[in-house]
Design a binder for these strands. Structure first.
Lengths: 140, 140
DNA sequence: ATTTTAATTGCAAAGCCTTGCAATCACCCC
DNA sequence: GGGGTGATTGCAAGGCTTTGCAATTAAAAT
């Protein structure tokens, strides 16, 4: 429960209220092993706290994302997935044929980031990129 | 109207039917100067052909995208935008502060594509990437 | 030209996410 | 500890997109 307090501290420092709803959403994200969706968070929290509304989940996720505390990734499947930012950034290759997801180290985008910075003075926020394509096995 | 026939030929070659609905959606995409959204296509087509249903627009776009004939890009703003693939690929930098969109040449991702191919034997389909971040003017 | 057949469409419902608004509540101050 | 205040929530409605299904229709077969 130490990680949770880190994020709680950041929220509190920045003047955001620590509501039970936020705490429970946070808990669900922090305790999730994989990338978790809004509906999964909702389903999990509601077991102990049936009064929660799903729009609160979405608003909490939007806040945490805006503050850089969680990353948002669209791995396909029509729903966005979330991950605590302090659990390490990484990227994903998603095979459009077989659905396989390959995890990549964050460093694969280092060169791209440098070029964008150098040539456009643009600072990209590429912390959790999903790239679609065809994996080795599906290449005929 | 030459471009349209190119795509029509490809559809027909691959055994897809050439329905009036598809033709009109195609026309709207081909004649659009900028990246166009599904609703914009719908609004445009319906002026001449009021019977069209918007789900047909979405299904046509999904088909054209699957066949690689149009690109799909999420530039933010909660709706996806489409562009004919043969009008040239390019990428976009979207500033999260001011909303400004900077167009990039396709070549900025060449290095990344090579690395993914070399290290993972993965062939990414990066034809129209949107990257979010902070532009030069918004950097304080 | 007619028939056949599977692809495509329209419709209605649903899915994921966002938003406006009034009611509630966390936190600051005394 | 109790009151004031603005942030936050729940609710309901809406926006964009997808999907199941029966009816229609393009194109192949006759």
């Amino acid at each position: 429960m130490k990680k949770t307090s880190d994020i709680i501290n950041k929220l509190s420092e920045q003047g955001y209220r620590l509501t039970p709803q936020r705490m429970m959403v946070l808990d669900a994200i922090e305790n999730s092993e994989h990338h978790i969706s809004a509906e999964e968070i909702y389903a999990q929290v509601i077991m102990e706290y049936p009064h929660l509304n799903i729009s609160t989940v979405y608003r909490t996720l939007e806040l945490l994302h805006r503050l850089g505390l969680v990353t948002e990734t669209d791995l396909g499947g029509g729903r966005v997935r979330y991950h605590p930012a302090d659990k390490g950034h990484h990227h994903h290759l998603v095979c459009q044929e077989c659905g396989r997801v390959i995890d990549l180290d964050e460093s694969v985008t280092d060169n791209l980031k440098q070029v964008l910075k150098r040539d456009y003075n643009f600072t990209p926020d590429i912390r959790h990129l999903a790239l679609f394509g065809t994996c080795a096995d599906c290449k005929r």
